[in-house]
Design a protein around this nucleic acid. Sequence first.
DNA 1: GATGGGACTTGAACACGTTCAACTATCCGC
DNA 2: GCGGATAGTTGAACGTGTTCAAGTCCCATC
Lengths: 224, 224
Amino acid sequence: MPDTASRSPKGEQTRQAIVAAALGLFRAGGYDATTMRAIADEAGVSLGNAYYYFSSKEHLVQAFYDQVQTEHASAARRVLATETAFAPRLSGLFVAWVDVATPYHAFAGQFFKNAAEPTSPLSPFSPESAPARDASIVLFRTVVEGSDLKVTPELRSELPELLWMLHMGVVLFWVHDASPDQRRTRRLVERIVPLVDRLARMTRLPVVRGIVEDLVVLLRDLRR
Amino acid sequence: MPDTASRSPKGEQTRQAIVAAALGLFRAGGYDATTMRAIADEAGVSLGNAYYYFSSKEHLVQAFYDQVQTEHASAARRVLATETAFAPRLSGLFVAWVDVATPYHAFAGQFFKNAAEPTSPLSPFSPESAPARDASIVLFRTVVEGSDLKVTPELRSELPELLWMLHMGVVLFWVHDASPDQRRTRRLVERIVPLVDRLARMTRLPVVRGIVEDLVVLLRDLRR
DNA sequence: GATGGGACTTGAACACGTTCAACTATCCGC
DNA sequence: GCGGATAGTTGAACGTGTTCAAGTCCCATC
């Protein structure tokens, strides 16, 4: 079952037809209302054949994930190439994600529950999501390392993952955000970034530094 | 269809039999593996009858919610009656929740997705959950107000909701925690509470105070 | 004690995601 | 070109959550 590997020419063609059919139907009618039979029909393959390429309906959503991640990465590169200060770099990353994801907001809410299940491959914490997760964390590492931000070395190494967690929080907020064009999410981003910026710069102050060190130790301890 | 209302004697008896059967089977075999047919059999009613009382399998989960919340509230009252310092009060609340929820960990993750869906009434952010949410926030308010903690007035009024959000974070961690007896969650709690304690007391320092005020303003702005 | 209506109960039927044994196409070594 | 393995393909069948038309029971009203 070649789920993400083994790209022989013939199969790849069918695979992409299924992905195209699925994304089209998802976007048109939502996740739940789109049946695997409809996807197979639309792609011109049999039901069983769709399962040969994607071992579940959820696995089809991984294609959507990859697409958003890829688009975000390229949009992020444009921002990171021009900005040098920490705050605009971070803000740029957040805003770029919202821009990329906005067209899918309605559809995202419907299958978000599947991503929230700990055992689901769609969970951002799952092993299957590790590549996308790591790629995302790399973006935040670039935000930190390419900027003028001065923090302690220990925090500097943990900051990318912390920022990714904040990003997950923004995503959670976005999914629940029913305001037009997700304006509340945009407002959250534009106002939380300066806070993070100030907070990060504050971590070198003697009074704050101790607590940050403890936090870093806790993070490292929980990770193993 | 008397889902949560209309408690005439006859129906209530059947209703409780179904809840008891469901919780027992959920706990024994997990959420997904427990079929509605098995629940109906165990309760001694027909399949259709189970649906007369609970319009979906998800709605049966509300019974679990109510039970955990009730148990947590009473366990919390015991802790809050004996402790006066902020840190042990907060820690007590967190630990009490983990204690209450631990027996259900295996299958809690399986239906956690229901709570994560933005449109679901089971979401902790939904209007339907407002009573349970408010009841929980009240517990955290009691933690703050019954303690020796000194913070600025603005933060003091927002702190209960902030602590509730932290609690949601702990719950999220717990759901994803596969370690035996959820030891990692317990370690997280026991080590993050002192950090929160120090952080809260630090908010009166001039350098930190400004950022806290901005955070409070942001919270209030996003809420409306 | 009939009767009407609401509360309650039933199991067959439906649509869905998923599985699987069987089948066909393709390609590689000889 | 032959044989066999690997890749690709099929649709019927299964178990599930859910719906529904058709009942049965209860009891207030007359």
